[in-house]
Amino acid sequence: METRVHEIADGVYRLSTFVPEVTPDGFTFNQFLIDADEPMLFHCGQRMLFPLVSEAVAKVMPVERLRWVGFGHVEADESGSMNQWLAAAPNATVVHGQTACDVSLNDLADRPPRALADGEVLDLGGKRMRWLDTPHVPHGWEAGCFYEEAAGTLFCGDLLTHVGDPAPITSADVLGAAVAADEMFGAMSLAPGSGAALRRLADLAPRTLALMHGSSYAGDGAAALKGLAEYCERRRAA
C-alpha cells in the first residue's frame, strides 16, 4: 500500500490509502492536512497506517509542526493512531466536540484534548475551522464536522462514503455512489434529526466536500447534502 498526496483546495491536502481487501471494489481511507500557521490533521487513521500517513505528511511539512489533530467521531479509522501523532508532534493537541471529550477522549488521549462547543471556531492562522455537532450523523452520538470558512471546505467524515479507488477530487455525482455504498453497509444512523442535521450542513453551501472514503467533491456541496438528507428521510419513513 501507499498513501498518495493531492491538494484538493488551497492549503488542504488529501492523504489517501487504497486498501483493496475492503469491499469487492476496494476502499480508500483518507486523511486531510490543513496547512496554516497552526497546521491540523483531520482523521488520524488506524494505528497500522501511521507509518504510511506520517510519511505522506512529511512530504508537505515536518510532522512535528502539527498543532491540532481532529476527527469526526471516535472510531479506529478516524482516531486509532491518535496517540502516535501526539508522540510524533510534541506540540499537537487533539480537538473535538464536548461530547467526545467527556465520554472518551479525556481518558483515551495521552494529552488533554481541547473541547469545542457547537459552532465554535478554531483559528489556525490563515484557516478558520468551525466545529459543528452532528449527533448520530452519520453515526455515533459524539459525531461532528469541521467547516473551513476561508475556502468553503466541509470536512465530512463518513458522510457520502463511497467505495473503490476513484479520482482524488471530482465534480461528478457522489450522491448516487454514496447511496449504493450505504445500501451495502447500512452505516447511516436513521435518527429523527438526521435530515435536519444534514440540511444545516447544506446551508453552509460548501464548495468542497472532503470525504473520508472516496473522492472529494468540488461543486454544489449543498445539493449533495440535501440529497443525502432526503435519502435518510425516505429510509426512515419506510
Score class of each variant (00 low, 15 high):
residue 181 A to K: 06
residue 209 L to W: 05
residue 144 G to E: 09
residue 156 C to Y: 06
residue 12 V to N: 03
residue 129 M to H: 15
residue 56 A to C: 04
residue 209 L to T: 12
residue 93 T to A: 05
residue 20 P to A: 08
residue 55 E to T: 14
residue 3 T to I: 09
residue 74 V to P: 00
residue 218 A to I: 12
residue 17 T to V: 06
residue 193 G to D: 11
residue 11 G to A: 09
residue 68 W to Y: 14
residue 223 A to H: 02
residue 149 E to R: 14
residue 224 A to G: 01
residue 140 G to Q: 11
residue 25 D to Q: 12
residue 74 V to T: 01
residue 176 G to Q: 12
residue 55 E to Y: 13
residue 18 F to K: 11
residue 238 A to D: 08
residue 19 V to Q: 11
residue 91 N to P: 00
residue 203 D to I: 13
residue 201 L to C: 03
residue 50 F to L: 01
residue 163 V to L: 13
residue 157 G to R: 07
residue 15 L to T: 10
residue 140 G to N: 11
residue 5 V to F: 06
residue 107 D to I: 13
residue 6 H to C: 02
residue 133 D to F: 13
residue 55 E to A: 15
residue 103 V to W: 11
residue 142 E to C: 03
residue 197 A to S: 13
residue 222 A to N: 13
residue 190 L to Y: 13
residue 166 P to V: 13
residue 224 A to C: 09
residue 152 G to Y: 05
residue 238 A to I: 01
residue 224 A to Y: 03
residue 85 W to H: 01
residue 58 A to R: 13
residue 161 T to N: 10
residue 109 A to D: 01
residue 138 P to D: 07
residue 108 L to Y: 14
residue 235 R to L: 06
residue 88 A to Q: 00
residue 167 A to W: 02
residue 45 G to I: 06
residue 152 G to L: 05
residue 13 Y to G: 00
residue 55 E to H: 14
residue 214 G to C: 09
residue 70 G to K: 12
residue 77 D to Y: 08
residue 150 A to Q: 14
residue 85 W to K: 02
residue 184 M to N: 04
residue 138 P to Q: 05
residue 41 L to P: 04
residue 157 G to Y: 10
residue 107 D to K: 15
residue 126 G to C: 01
residue 167 A to N: 03
residue 20 P to I: 06
residue 90 P to M: 01
residue 19 V to S: 06
residue 49 L to N: 15
residue 142 E to M: 03
residue 217 Y to A: 14
residue 194 S to L: 08
residue 34 I to R: 11
residue 146 F to W: 11
residue 227 G to M: 07
residue 138 P to G: 09
residue 44 C to G: 03
residue 118 D to L: 04
residue 115 A to K: 05
residue 219 G to S: 09
residue 183 E to C: 00
residue 198 L to I: 15
residue 160 L to T: 14
residue 75 E to R: 00
residue 112 P to N: 08
residue 65 R to P: 01
residue 186 G to E: 06
residue 137 V to R: 08
residue 198 L to M: 14
residue 170 T to G: 10
residue 146 F to P: 04
residue 74 V to A: 00
residue 98 Q to P: 10
residue 226 K to N: 11
residue 13 Y to W: 12
residue 143 A to C: 02
residue 92 A to M: 01
residue 173 D to V: 01
residue 211 L to D: 07
residue 187 A to Q: 11
residue 95 V to E: 01
residue 230 E to H: 13
residue 92 A to E: 04
residue 65 R to S: 04
residue 166 P to F: 15
residue 143 A to V: 00
residue 187 A to D: 09
residue 222 A to I: 11
residue 237 A to S: 14
residue 2 E to M: 06
residue 129 M to N: 13
residue 213 H to G: 12
residue 73 H to G: 00
residue 109 A to M: 01
residue 170 T to S: 13
residue 177 A to F: 08
residue 210 A to V: 03
residue 132 L to A: 04
residue 186 G to F: 02
residue 207 R to A: 12
residue 11 G to L: 09
residue 20 P to L: 09
residue 41 L to I: 02
residue 199 R to N: 15
residue 96 H to I: 03
residue 158 D to N: 12
residue 56 A to W: 07
residue 192 P to L: 05
